[in-house]
Simulated assay, not measured.
Amino acid sequence: MRTRDLAGLALTEIGFGAAGLGNLYRAIDDETSQRCVDAAWEGGIRYFDTAPHYGLGLSERRLGAALAGRPREEFVVSTKVGRLLVPRVPPRDRDDEMFEVPGDLTREWGFEPGAVRRSVEESLERTGLGYLDIALVHDPDVSGEPDALERGLEALLALRAEGVVRAVGVGTNDAVTAAVALERYDIDTVMLAGQYTLLRNDGFDRVRAAAGDRRVVLAGVFNSGILARPQVPEAATFDYEPAPRAQLDRAREIAAMAARHGATLPQLAVELPLRQECVASVVLGMQTETEVRENLGLLARPRFSAWTELPELGL
């Protein structure tokens, strides 16, 4: 698989989004998790993204176990800071977020230097990795914490200066937060989810301008499901809610246009961001071997060549 440079790191054009390894929406077993990462590796993926938030640490543990024994210099891992995992008192049977895991832990916001350092150290312990390639401040815009972006980035920049992490940035669903981070701080990248897709360009132009000669990572390019299949079902979701009629109609128009040229809707959803020079990688969530192979197959198809038709669809 082709790679693109990000702060001296070689990121594969498709990145492995490991939230699913943390039992996102449904539980999988350790064997399924291992086979999923094995399939990604065999398919050429060498960039893996995780976070403490994903399954209360389960994603980090499973990803680390699945990568154990592979040459460390041959892959890139990003994780996130801002949510510390602490005991829940009293414990709950299940996590109260989107993950099918026991609720014996909970998340606690923490962006000050001590909390950020502790988060990095605990991520290293859970993954078993000797070092982290990329650390991102996770969702500062929804934390409700004062100056979360500033405090989190200053803490990560200090760790980068110490050599604790190679590259630093922000992971967010908000394009304004991503752009401000790039405009104000000497960070290496941002990971922006769900804002530059076939159905939306919400602030990406500002992010691209702010990035300058830096590269960014994009996630959520299927807008939570509506763009993930060649045919758009009536029950499709857009940003984790039932898709509005206008979005269903637009997605189906694009799907029909893609089909006329021998392409598919998810293929275009992945290719669109990769047409941007400033994009280093597109991170796709994967939870099974089948999903890995389907995602890898999107880049195996002949590249789509009829992008000039998209403006006719209002894009």
Rank of each mutant, 00 (worst) to 15 (best):
D95S: 15
D95N: 15
D96R: 07
E97W: 11
E97V: 12
M98N: 13
M98F: 11
M98Q: 12
F99P: 03
E100K: 11
E100N: 12
V101Y: 10
P102D: 10
G103M: 05
G103P: 03
L105P: 05
L105I: 06
T106P: 08
T106Q: 14
R107Q: 15
R107G: 10
R107F: 13
E108Q: 12
W109N: 15
W109G: 08
G110V: 00
F111G: 11
F111V: 06
P113Y: 01
P113C: 01
G114D: 14
A115V: 00
R117D: 08
S119P: 01
E121V: 11
E122D: 07
E122G: 05
E122Y: 00
S123M: 06
S123T: 07
L124G: 04
L124C: 02
L124R: 06
E125G: 07
E125N: 02
T127K: 02
G128N: 10
L129Y: 00
G130W: 10
Y131N: 09
D133Q: 01
A135D: 02
L136C: 08
L136Q: 10
L136V: 11
V137P: 04
V137N: 06
V137D: 02
D139G: 14
P140N: 11
P140T: 10
V142N: 09
S143T: 13
S143K: 14
G144Y: 08
G144A: 15
P146V: 11
P146C: 14
D147C: 13
D147Q: 13
D147T: 11
D147P: 12
A148L: 04
L149K: 10
E150S: 14
G152L: 08
L153M: 14
E154Y: 10
L156H: 02
L159H: 05
L159R: 00
L159K: 03
R160N: 04
R160D: 09
A161Y: 01
E162H: 05
G163C: 04
G163Q: 07
V164I: 09
V165D: 02
A167H: 08
A167C: 05
A167P: 11
A167I: 07
V168G: 00
G169Q: 08
V170P: 09
T172V: 13
D174K: 07
D174G: 15
A175M: 06
A175E: 04
A175S: 15
V176K: 03
V176T: 09
V180W: 03
V180Y: 03
V180R: 12
A181V: 06
A181Q: 03
A181K: 14
L182G: 08
L182Y: 06
L182F: 08
R184M: 11
R184L: 03
R184T: 12
Y185R: 13
D186K: 10
D186E: 10
D186H: 09
I187E: 06
I187V: 10
T189N: 14
V190N: 03
V190S: 14
M191K: 12
M191R: 15
L192F: 09
A193K: 04
G194K: 01
G194Y: 03
Y196W: 06
Y196A: 05
T197V: 00
T197K: 02
T197H: 03
L198G: 00
L199S: 07
R200T: 00
R200Y: 00
N201R: 12
D202M: 01
D202R: 02
G203T: 09
G203E: 03
F204W: 14
F204Q: 04
D205I: 01
R208L: 13
R208A: 13
